[in-house]
Design a protein around this nucleic acid. Sequence first.
DNA 1: GCATTAATTGAGTATCTCTTCAACCGATGA
DNA 2: TCATCGGTTGAAGAGATACTCAATTAATGC
Lengths: 132, 132
Amino acid sequence: MAEATERLQRYLEDELGECRDEDVEQRLDELGTLEAALGPAQVDDELGVLSALANETRYTLARVLVAAGEELCVCELNAVVDVSESGLSHALSALVDAGLATGRKDGRWKKYRATNRAITLVTVLDGSVSDE
Amino acid sequence: MAEATERLQRYLEDELGECRDEDVEQRLDELGTLEAALGPAQVDDELGVLSALANETRYTLARVLVAAGEELCVCELNAVVDVSESGLSHALSALVDAGLATGRKDGRWKKYRATNRAITLVTVLDGSVSDE
DNA sequence: GCATTAATTGAGTATCTCTTCAACCGATGA
DNA sequence: TCATCGGTTGAAGAGATACTCAATTAATGC
């Protein structure tokens, strides 16, 4: 039996008074169930969204697009973040990949808009962090 | 006038038909307002939360703590993630720093519990990613 | 067609981040 | 009091990330 599992057994003994090998098995199973409640694909998707937002440049862009409530031109977004034109483009395509924005070409200009997913997340984040 | 601002001017000319310097100023101001709606401290806090969750180990721990609905011992959490004991400890303290979990010492065991902030965020993430 | 403009792509690099190892702290029990 | 056990801390290396620069694409206008 692995070292970590032995520790779990001692813990369960402490908590339950006694602890057979079956009890350890059952607890491991319960913990596995908690972890596996979401499919791996969905966890990956959620991690993708979180990673996309966990960066000052991209989070600022997401917040501005959400606050604007309409599509904004790349040349406008250039004014709100402090990176090169190329950096801005990389950031925007990361947001699109994560499903947080959509892009549309309009003549020689390119416009981006926040998705519903972005709106929900930015709104909830603002709320959940301001209240305590 | 900076290169990026000139481009914005041409864009506004395109959109509005005409564009004086004042119009550019006003648009820059509007964009600045969108960006500055949240204070820098709150943005930092939100970025901290996002960074804490944007990692497989820590996100798994957060999800399990939320799903458990009660405090769990470090020795139990050891079973749900695939890192060393030390890595687990680092991950948990990052969650605590971000306000996503709280820790409590109970005799020789240490127990962690999800905060309301964690519950809200994990719940919303699950919802916002599954629906489309 | 050719030049210009808006934006994207890819390569390269500096920086940050995650994980582990080793040493450590605090509580328990012999 | 000393050894053991649960867990944390700090340093260090491997790996991932986020920029910038240079080259490229696509659209517009001459």
